[in-house]
Nucleic acid binder design. Structure first.
Lengths: 242, 242
DNA sequence: ACCTGAACACCGTTCAAGT
DNA sequence: ACCTGAACACCGTTCAAGT
């Protein structure tokens, strides 16, 4: 299965043409893996068809044999990453706990792959893993006693919140990269400090609250904000449980 | 103030060079207006520096005198649109009602300008109108009795939800445009029908709930989903009010 | 069936030169 | 100070030609 296409050995005087690299057969899986590698190492903006082709030592046109277009490639990469999410056995009696754990897990996995969350928001994912996750959340809410109609709405809103927050978080990632920061801590300090200075400089007659409570506006980091909003949501859902 | 740069009349034999169009002086405002015109008529993806320059009958390089880069232009267009949002006098006793009305208003205005919501999500807006709106929401929550710390968190999460949902809605707009649909109704029917068929075709052993309750999954449209999530949020905030 | 070089129609931004 | 033509270094996608 492995190896070169034909058995002819490389003549020694040609060895500088394709150095070391064995000529690989393309496949969708290979393309998705290359895409994920670029995403993780260089961010979503670097993930171009041309860059993926380069990674696979071919031209961009070759990719179109295995992938319809860039959007499809991104969706495949996205679903590949969703495969990292592990779901527990459903336990309807602990729905709130399980839903919180699920949301945190999705948030964590998306956060681990640069600005991939942008892809989730820009498409309506219908890959294998999206459905698997949907079945988990939808089933959990129904088994906990919600009507299918309300379970559908709750699932939809919760997903939007989780992905939306992951996306917002990834913007900091992109800005950090663009600003040349190495340390996440150093970047956040610089960025938040800038925002704080801007707020403090606002005219207090027109913006009394924003200019006065700057410390409160910048007190919580992304993780704490995410949890706060998640609990707002879960409490709202709980209030609707029969 | 108006008129041509110099008093020399156009010689009749040159009148075909700049037909009808009087040579305009560029300005940031003119550029922002041109950008907004393109956004409304052709969508965010069509809003390129080259397209704006074309609209103003000049080359792309000319824009960089008045605008640092494309990101800045988009932020200016975004804040220009936020200027359409009218806010009432704050009435802390009716905070929940006012917050709901505010959220619906932002949602409505963003929905009225193609996929502009993408800009709000991709940047952390700091324009004049963003601050004006922030002061309104933040002040309202504080005056209603929340601690500044919790008011900050609630404001932040609510904004994320509203803009996130507007963005998701705008994707349908983009898809409608790409699919060549004229009627929004016709598009939604086609799109939702496709999703429904996909869900119905799923193996019911692996995905019992998703495949069984398809009608419930597609029952509510964007407006209803938005309101449901908004109420989840507002109920959660209410539970945290002293 | 699969792969590819070359081309098409685009991007954002810079820079030297003009007024 | 303001404007601009030309260039640079990119895009996604198509298509005819090759194996």
């Amino acid at each position: 299965m492995e190896g070169r296409k034909d058995g002819v050995p490389v003549p020694p005087w040609r060895k500088s043409r394709k150095p070391a690299q064995v000529r690989r057969q393309l496949s969708q899986e290979l393309i998705v893996e290359a895409g994920l590698r670029i995403l993780d190492a260089e961010g979503l903006d670097a993930l171009s068809m041309r860059r993926v082709a380069q990674e696979l030592d071919t031209g961009p046109a070759s990719l179109y044999v295995h992938v319809a277009n860039k959007d499809e490639l991104l969706e495949l990469v996205y679903d590949r990453v969703l495969g990292e999410i592990e779901l527990p056995e459903r336990d309807p009696g602990r729905w709130k706990e399980q839903l919180r754990a699920y949301a945190m897990e999705v948030h964590r996995v998306l956060g681990g792959h640069a600005d991939l969350a942008r892809v989730a928001l820009a498409n309506i994912p219908t890959g294998e893993n999206s459905i698997r996750i949907g079945e988990f959340v939808f089933g959990l809410l129904i088994e906990a006693g919600m009507s299918p109609r309300e379970a559908s709405l709750s699932m939809d809103r919760l997903s939007l919140y989780v992905v939306g927050d992951a996306y917002e978080g990834s913007l900091h990632y992109a800005r950090m990269r663009a600003g040349g920061f190495q340390d996440k801590q150093a970047y956040l300090q610089a960025f938040v400090g800038q925002i704080a200075d801007y707020y403090r400089a606002l005219p207090s007659e027109r913006f009394p609250h924003v200019s006065k409570f700057v410390d409160d506006l910048i007190a919580d980091d992304g993780e704490e904000r995410f949890r706060y909003g998640l609990d707002l949501f879960l409490d709202g859902i709980e209030a609707r449980m029969p």
